[in-house]
């Protein structure tokens, strides 16, 4: 069935997945820029967002929006605990130790999720029904619109926060030079904690809006995490437009590759793209090459 409407369908799926990857990528960039750490556990926040929402809904009889707010709050709490218990106590550690600790945290969170919620796959109800809309013969689920809408909102909020709010500016200052920032009275520790908070919140939001479309389970974090990482690498480790484009590009390539080449190698496409980017342009596609100071 090779026809234009199918192409539109692939593009649509690609864009909505890509939006999610971009949001996950933001999470990576925010923590990385504040601390120099690449948080391997970023994907787990995404998993937690979806899983918390599902289980809050099943235990408490509350409306979806409230469940979402609670789920984001819980995921953020996990982010805070992670930072307080495993990152802050460290002093003068080798970069390798940080890599191992974040990997440890990632599989710990995943394992805990498995113990608490089991190995089953769960579905979150779509935010506004499953009545599809038709555009050029392709079906759009209302959830796609939610994904696009919320992603755009987060991108704008993120931009406003880092460009105009005092807190956002302080975080950026820490990213440039933590020591200088501390000299002008910015509490660097708080900023680091805050970066985990923001990044856990954005990550869990991404997990919540995608859950109705793709289902979720304790182990979705790793794949989503790596794809978000791929997006942020393409975007040159920024929480800006580069990463959004990176995410959309990855989503599109993946979806078209799965549609026209081979569906069973869908995930492999993403990883091949990741390796190619890391090998050829690790500084990102949208960033000018700079000489690094040793």
């Amino acid at each position: 069935m090779d026809n234009p409407s199918q192409l539109v369908q692939y593009i649509l799926t690609g864009l909505s997945n890509g939006a999610i990857y971009a949001l996950i990528g933001f999470g990576f960039a925010i923590i990385h820029n504040a601390t120099g750490i690449l948080n391997f556990a970023q994907g787990e926040f995404v998993m937690l967002g979806g899983m918390f929402t599902i289980f809050i809904l099943s235990f408490l009889n509350i409306p979806l929006p409230m469940a979402i707010v609670l789920a984001i709050a819980f995921s953020t709490l996990v982010g805070i605990l992670f930072e307080r218990l495993a990152i802050r106590p460290l002093k003068n550690v080798k970069p390798l130790s940080l890599v191992i600790i974040t990997i440890g945290a990632s599989i710990f969170i995943r394992g805990a999720a498995m113990l608490i919620w089991g190995k089953d796959t769960h579905a979150l109800p779509a935010f506004s029904g499953n009545e599809p809309l038709y555009v050029y013969g392709a079906t759009i689920m209302p959830q796609h619109l939610w994904i696009f809408g919320i992603t755009i909102l987060i991108i704008i909020a993120n931009k406003l926060f880092f460009s105009y709010s005092i807190l956002g500016k302080a975080m950026r200052a820490c990213a440039y030079n933590a020591y200088a920032a501390s000299l002008v009275g910015i509490d660097v520790k708080i900023m680091v904690l805050l970066s985990f908070v923001v990044s856990a919140a954005i990550g869990s939001m991404a997990g919540i809006i995608i859950a109705p479309l793709t289902m979720t389970s304790y182990d979705v974090g790793i794949m989503l995490g790596i794809k978000g990482f791929c997006a942020v690498i393409i975007g040159g480790m920024s929480s800006g437009l580069g990463t959004v484009l990176g995410g959309l590009l990855l989503g599109l390539l993946e979806s078209l590759g799965a549609g026209y080449i081979s569906a069973s190698y869908k995930d492999a496409f993403a990883f091949i793209i990741l390796l190619l980017i890391l090998f050829i342009r690790p500084e990102g596609l949208f960033k000018q090459k700079e000489t690094q100071r040793v």
Partner: peptide, 17 residues
């Protein structure tokens, strides 16, 4: 067997720290 990855994760963190 059910706890394996939780324990691996915890071990990685605690031993490294």
């Amino acid at each position: 067997r059910d706890f394996d990855i939780v324990i691996y994760g915890l071990m990685l963190i605690l031993i490294t720290m």
